[in-house]
């Protein structure tokens, strides 16, 4: 397994969960810049519905860890207005399925302001939200919608698959002068990994990370499926040498890293929990075709949700959610 691709000076690491990594990223940025604040439903007193912001209210004021009404259009819009006037809000949308409620402020204000105004405003806002099925939350609390945001011009979309990526990317997102959507798969909050402790540690947005090197097949994965793919690669290590890439950034997309891997392996699986049609898979494959067509030794494989919503009943939910077995099957079809 490769180490992370931090560009910063790393003084040491600490084992922590994705949840802790996100919390530490926010804590460090809140301490570093007084223009940064967090707002969202239940982020303060409650500590976040997934405990991600637990403890921040005690360390910072109510002004900066701000509980909102259940009013996504209102407070996300307020975040846009605050970002346009010199603040650096982190807005938490409890479940990404709720992003639809605030879509107007996202698509017509946040995404377009800089461009429409001829570059004369910054939009330093970070939207944190949770995605993914696996906890019986049914269709309105389990979706993976990041494709919409990666697709929409003017937005930046990142979806980390490891604790280090979560911390480094969130810190970069908060420091960015562009609107960044930060998608957290809720099933990997407890996943642990080594995370640099240097408060200056950040990861550049727009760079993928080779998490495991291999020679035969490349798996380009996101979020929970990074870990699932690493498990699959380990399982198959006697038969096939699998390279696993954490895509990390959906837009901009690191074409260079994925094409370089394709050129080495000639075979690619794209694993992402969004629905298969018109999604992240399609964009990754297109980049590979456009830039590495002659390196392809086999048609690319896609692993994702087969164009359904996430059903409630555990047996149905497990049926549609992709996992290591689906990645393994895809690798086996290629190898």
């Amino acid at each position: 397994m490769s180490t992370d691709t931090s560009t910063s000076n790393v003084s040491g690491t600490e084992s922590m969960t994705v949840r802790e990594a996100i919390r530490e990223a926010m804590r460090e940025e809140l301490a570093r810049d007084e223009d940064v604040f967090l707002m969202g439903e239940d982020v303060g007193l409650f500590g976040g519905v997934f405990d991600v912001s637990d403890g921040l209210l005690a360390d910072f004021s109510e002004d900066r860890i701000r509980d909102t009404p259940i009013s996504e259009a209102g407070f996300l819009g307020a975040g846009v207005g605050a970002a346009a006037t010199g603040s650096r809000p982190i807005v938490e949308i409890m479940f990404s399925d709720f992003l639809g409620v605030s879509m107007e402020q996202t698509m017509n204000q946040m995404a377009k302001m800089r461009y429409m105004f001829g570059g004369k405003t910054e939009m330093p806002i970070t939207i944190r939200t949770t995605e993914g099925g696996g906890m019986g939350a049914a269709s309105q609390h389990s979706g993976t919608v990041h494709t919409w945001f990666a697709h929409f011009p003017g937005l930046i979309a990142v979806a980390p698959g490891t604790p280090a990526a979560a911390k480094g990317l969130l810190k970069s997102a908060i420091r960015s002068n562009d609107p960044v959507f930060f998608f957290e798969n809720k099933m990997i909050y407890e996943q642990t990994g080594e995370v640099p402790t240097d408060p200056d540690f950040t990861l550049p947005i727009g760079e993928a990370s080779v998490e495991r090197t291999g020679e035969d097949v490349t798996v380009i994965a996101t979020q929970r499926l990074v870990g699932e793919s690493l498990d699959a690669a380990e399982e198959l290590s006697d038969q096939v040498s699998v390279e696993v890439i954490d895509l990390r950034s959906l837009y901009p997309l690191d074409t260079e890293t994925i094409v370089a891997s394709l050129e080495k392996t000639g075979r690619v699986v794209v694993a992402d929990e969004s629905p298969l049609s018109y999604g992240v898979h399609a964009e990754v494959v297109t980049r590979l075709v456009e830039n590495g067509f002659y390196s392809l030794d086999a048609p690319p494989e896609r692993v994702g949700v087969p164009d359904t919503h996430i059903p409630f009943s555990p047996s149905l939910e497990q049926e549609v959610l992709p996992d290591a077995a689906d990645v393994t099957a895809a690798i086996e079809r290629l190898a």
């Binding site: 819009g77 975040g79 846009v80 207005g81 605050a82 006037t85 402020q105 204000q109």
Partner: peptide, 9 residues
Amino acid sequence: PLATGAALS
């Protein structure tokens, strides 16, 4: 909403 945000800022 933008004005609310500017006022918040």
